[in-house]
Amino acid sequence: MPVSLAGGAIAVAGVAVALRGSRRELDERTALLAGLTAAFVFGAQMLNFPVAGGTSGHLLGGALAAILVGPWTGLLCVSVVLAVQALLFADGGLSALGVNIVLMAIVTVIVGYGVFRGLLRVLPKTRPSAVAASFAGALVSVPASAATFVLLYAVGGTADVPLGTVLSAMLGVHVLIGIGEALITAVTVSSVLAVRPDLVYGARDLARPLELRTSPVETS
């Protein structure tokens, strides 16, 4: 209970900061792109893929949304997805919404986008390196989210479960889920980059500005 309250407080603060930050990222199309990304993450979250031993994982989408629409708007997207899922589809539970936003929106966006930008700074500015960076960002974001869950559980868990067991079990499964997440993120980013590079916020500086070439035309 105190954990869900604290989670709620952190979530509200995070969303408030993101609301201010996203004004810088928004142009007239971004609300549309943000809504579409949210719908996309929502749809993709329904697609469960089998991992190992009967458990299955689904896309968290934090890293993907951050790379596509920018970290602030991406955070808003995933938060909206989680809120709508909790309210309308009764998935995840209303009381856990704060914790869910912290885990699946704030942690994945910060870690995923942080790794992505950090790698882009060192890698050569090409499309393959943007794809590789998005792979790494998504891969790291999932175990980071799981580790945060274990941390929260250690602080406020109601049942006395050995921490080491939980941590190793969670991390083991989530590294596998992370590979799935990373593949999906990287392939999505790569196919969008190939067709509509203008839609990938995280790789804007890769786009070469268009040059205006003029050639004299013979007039008679």
């Binding site: 969303v15 609300a31 549309l32 809504g35 579409l36 949210a38 719908a39 997207c77 938060s79 909206v80």
Partner: peptide
């Protein structure tokens, strides 16, 4: 902003 994102999301 949140309502707008949610509106587009439900729409799409």
């Amino acid at each position: 902003q949140l309502v707008q994102i949610a509106a587009f999301m439900l729409r799409y």
